[in-house]
């Protein structure tokens, strides 16, 4: 078996598809790959031209929604996502008609369901991001989403907070997105001390929010299970109302 290693980026993955499609073989991320002594391994150079050829091939077969699902499923970073997507890709190109909604096919259904999971995580981030205002007038939020969803939430936050500078930092993947009132850039930073960087009114508003949160609860209807179902514990650490 031949194994093709790529750098983890979407363009890298598409470049690998370009290599593997005719020759056969499997695609793996180079940083999580476990060496296999019976297989030959090849490194794949990320090649924007090749990536673009695969993507425009897909664009001819998939709707805008379908392309978005394909990209979303990739962002899941699941262990076997490259295999699933490669199989899906073959299924797409082997059929004349669009197979995007052929949910009876296992690969189509898997990609659709994975995209849905990623979409749900994206939606959660739109809900659970909590900005704190810094002295430099930047609204800053830490997150650690289950999937790599920052690329998917840029538009939402850019449209919504068009008149304030903000940064959302993915602690698990160690990169962030920063809006400077004009455009959104990817940023990396050292996460050390956070004391003393907040605006003087920041804690007041967090306290007011906590007061509101307490007042909005109806004690006679307590239903912790339902609360947890909608807002699993792993998200709590960044929510001021639950601190």
């Amino acid at each position: 078996m031949d194994i093709y290693l790529y750098d983890g980026s979407f363009e890298g993955y598409l470049s690998a598809v370009f290599e593997v499609y005719k020759k056969g073989g499997v695609i793996r991320k180079e940083n999580t790959f476990i060496p296999d002594m019976f297989a030959r391994t090849f490194g794949v150079q990320t090649d924007l031209e090749k990536a673009d050829r695969v993507w425009s091939g897909l664009s001819k077969k998939l709707s805008a929604d379908g392309l978005h699902q394909y990209f979303s499923a990739f962002l899941s970073e699941l262990d076997n996502i490259e295999d699933q997507l490669l199989n899906y890709t073959r299924h797409i190109f082997e059929n004349q008609a669009s197979v995007e909604r052929d949910f009876g096919n296992a690969f189509v259904l898997f990609v659709a369901q994975t995209a849905r999971k990623v979409h749900r995580e994206k939606h959660r981030m739109e809900a659970f991001v909590r900005f704190q205002l810094t002295k430099d007038d930047i609204y800053f939020s830490l997150v650690s989403p289950d999937y790599n969803v920052l690329p998917l939430i840029i538009r939402h936050f850019k449209d919504r907070y068009a008149d304030q500078r903000w940064m959302i930092y993915d602690r698990a993947r160690n990169y962030g997105i920063y809006y400077d009132l004009e455009k959104v850039d990817t940023v990396w930073m050292e996460m050390d001390k956070q004391e003393g960087i907040w605006d003087e009114k920041e804690l007041d508003y967090q306290a007011l929010w906590q007061t509101y949160y307490k007042g909005a609860n109806i004690a006679g209807r307590v239903n912790r299970k339902l609360q947890l179902q909608h807002m699993p514990k792993r998200y709590w650490k960044y929510l001021p109302e639950l601190r």
Binding site: A127, R160, Y161, A162, Q164, Y213, R221, R224, L226, H230
Partner: peptide, 25 residues
Amino acid sequence: KNTNKGLGNAHPGMGICHSYTPDGR
């Protein structure tokens, strides 16, 4: 839509639930 580069966007689409109180609402 936020067309005036102001604050906020109540664009059609899904509503967002930002938190849940202990009653699950």
